[in-house]
Amino acid sequence: MPRMNAARKHPVDFTLNGRTVRAEAENRMLLSDLLRHEIGLTGTHVGCEHGVCGACTVQIDGRPARACLTLAQQVRGGDVRTVEALSRDPAELSPLQAAFRRHHGLQCGFCTPGILMSLDVLLRERPDAGREDIREHLSGHLCRCTGYATIVEAALAAAEEQRKEEKPNV
């Protein structure tokens, strides 16, 4: 990586939700701030800025990552996906999102984008995930409203639905 001047902004080229973007960021700028305040995608929320609450979770190269613990410059050349891209059609909800609505898996919705981005990875990588897998996966997120039960139910329902779609004859 080239040596960069701390006082200046430097370009960050990366793929964001399937599109190539070029942004400018100081070295110390966090990815969460770049997404929210420079690019204007405010769906990624910041709850603690020290990596505990999980509200800022996005996907970087397919893996869940805390945007508040990632410097913007670290995603150069990478592939970033945020909650805004979860549903292909803005007028529709993805099966996971729809399950959250059906099961009341959210109240204030502040922690929800991070939880969705985490669960999206889990359900993609482990379509057979059961209750305990989901609970363990969710343990990296704090929700202060729901008491979690409906989040687990929503995730289980989405997993079940996904399995049905993948094996329509079963």
């Binding site: 945020t82 909650v83 979860l86 999102q97």
Partner: peptide
């Protein structure tokens, strides 16, 4: 919920 689930909430920040 639809807005909150798709990143279209409008919180103060």
């Amino acid at each position: 919920d639809a807005g909150l689930l798709t990143g279209r909430g409008r919180y103060i920040d």
